[in-house]
Amino acid sequence: MTLRITDVGERTGEHGVDARPTTPHRDAQAAPWVDRLWSTVLAGDSYAALDVVDDALGAGLEPETVLLDVIGAVQRRVGVEWAANRLSVAGEHAATAINDRAIAVLPVRRTGTPHGRIVVACVDQEWHALPARLVAETLRLRGWQVDYLGAQVPTAHLIGHIHRTGPDAVCLSSSLATRLPLAHRAITAVQAAGAPVMTGGLAFGADGRYAHLLGADAWAPDARAAADRLAAGPLPRPSPAHQVIDDLPHLGDQEYTMVARSSARLVRDTFHALRERSAFMRDYTDEQRERTAEDLAHIVDFLTASLYVDAPQIFTEFIAWTADVLTARGVPARALAPALDLLEEQLRDFPRARDFIDAGRSTLTARL
């Protein structure tokens, strides 16, 4: 493996909260503006991008449509183009910065008393902030007072803000499944502070299954759905007797804890074994070796997240995505197989982990 996937979140195009058009009419209305904005993003021209937003608003598009169906659609395309190796990581970051700036020029006018106060934040160590920003701006457009806290919000700081402001609800966003243990901690802490939690983002599953498993009070598949749910009525506040930490029975086997604690060693030992047993690594440059170590770290991280929620599909989907991205970059996907074999050797005493690796190997084989 010689692919740097440190910015593994690029697979989502910064879209932990999906902002896809919800009706054919809206899609057709936004399509020409998507093409124009995409051209400015590719050119790296932020001034032209702002002109596109202004022109779209002047042509009669609603700000929410511009936000979700134009800017949001372009950002999703950024992720697709990166995965297909048609856009570099630097290009993706530049495009995201332009889209973020475009969001800032959308008009938000408060009329009357706000519906209530909502805190929107990314869970700790989740740096993909644009999904949460889309939710925050959608709620502002619909008349809510919003405290947008941005990326990588430490749970202790989030709780301090809740105690100071007393929000009606907290919206937590996460794009990467590797953040689920931290998301669980944030959900239970917010509930213990007396505020209900709505979650969103690809980390929680396309159907929200991990949000429900981790005890969230609500889940939304996209920014519009989040706003609609909050408009439908307040989320129930946790009662003083609310059990905020529900044990996940599968964690009783301690596999998650042991694998998480030994993750650095697993990466190190797998890397050294690969270097000794794989002829193709002997001619690697220092940069290629560094990238291989990073790739191994991601594999272990996704395996650990899978163990936390007892969901092998988190691991298999990551393996499938990695194989596809490797192939797009001219790296044989079969390069993943030795790493999985060596990782399984080290986890011989962990049956769930071995089962998940076997599932990943089967997924990989189906793509070869």
Score class of each variant (00 low, 15 high):
Pro234Gly: 02
Asp27Ser: 11
Asp358Tyr: 06
Thr96His: 03
Asp324Ser: 12
Val41Arg: 00
Glu126Asp: 14
Ile159Ala: 05
Val108Met: 05
Ala353Phe: 01
Val53Gly: 04
Val108Leu: 10
Leu303His: 02
Thr304Ser: 06
Pro338Gly: 02
Leu68Cys: 10
Val70Asp: 07
Thr365Gln: 14
Asp124Lys: 01
Ala311Pro: 02
Val105His: 04
Leu202Lys: 13
Ala353Pro: 01
Gly200Trp: 07
Pro234Phe: 06
Leu3Ile: 15
Ala227Glu: 10
Ala192Ile: 06
Phe350Thr: 08
Leu87Met: 15
His93Gln: 13
Gly205Glu: 05
Leu303Pro: 03
Gly215Met: 06
Glu81Trp: 09
Cys171Asn: 04
Ile162Tyr: 00
Phe315Ile: 07
Leu130Phe: 11
Leu134Cys: 02
Asp55Arg: 14
Glu287Thr: 15
Ala297Asp: 15
Arg329Val: 11
Gln152His: 08
Leu251Trp: 06
Gly9Arg: 01
Leu134Val: 12
Asp349Gly: 08
Asp27His: 12
Gly44Trp: 06
Leu340Met: 08
Ala220Trp: 05
Thr292Gln: 14
Leu266Asp: 09
Leu248Arg: 02
Arg86Ser: 12
Thr2Val: 14
Arg11Lys: 05
Asp222Leu: 11
Val244Thr: 15
Ala293Arg: 07
Ala195Phe: 07
Ala90Lys: 09
Asp168Pro: 07
Gly143Trp: 08
Leu37Phe: 10
Ala19Trp: 04
Val331Tyr: 01
Pro338Met: 04
Gly91Met: 01
Ala220Arg: 02
Thr304Met: 00
Leu235Ser: 03
Pro154Arg: 06
Glu345Gly: 02
Phe315Ala: 00
Pro332Glu: 13
Ala186Tyr: 00
Tyr148Ser: 03
His115Asp: 12
Ala279Asn: 10
Val325Trp: 10
Phe204Tyr: 14
Gly194Arg: 00
Ala337Met: 13
Asp69Ser: 09
Pro221Arg: 08
Arg237Asp: 09
Ala335Leu: 10
Gly16His: 06
Gln243Tyr: 09
Asp35Leu: 12
Trp38Cys: 02
Gly233Ser: 10
Met1Pro: 13
Arg268Phe: 11
Leu87Phe: 08
Leu182Ala: 08
Gly60Ser: 01
Arg348Ser: 15
Asp18Gln: 13
Arg20Tyr: 09
Asp207Cys: 08
Leu235Gly: 09
Glu345Phe: 07
Arg20Cys: 10
Leu343Ser: 00
His25Phe: 13
Ile5Gln: 04
Cys122Gly: 03
Pro107Ile: 02
Ala206Phe: 11
Ile314Asp: 00
Val70Tyr: 00
Asp147Ser: 10
Arg361Tyr: 05
Trp219Val: 05
Ala335Asn: 13
Arg352Thr: 15
Ser263Glu: 14
Val244Arg: 14
Ile299Gln: 04
Thr22His: 11
Gly194Asp: 03
Val74Arg: 05
Ala192Val: 07
Gly16Met: 08
Ala95Ser: 15
Leu68Asp: 03
Gly330Asn: 11
Ile159Lys: 00
Gly233Lys: 06
Arg11His: 06
Leu266Thr: 04
Ala339His: 10
Glu287Asp: 14
Asp51Leu: 14
Trp219Gln: 05
Val331Phe: 08
Arg265Ser: 13
Thr257Trp: 11
Ala339Lys: 03
Leu57Arg: 03
Ser46Glu: 15
Leu42Phe: 05
Arg224Phe: 07
Ala366Trp: 06
Tyr284Ser: 10
Ala339Asp: 03
Ala189Trp: 05
Pro351Gln: 02
Cys171Trp: 04
Leu158Glu: 02
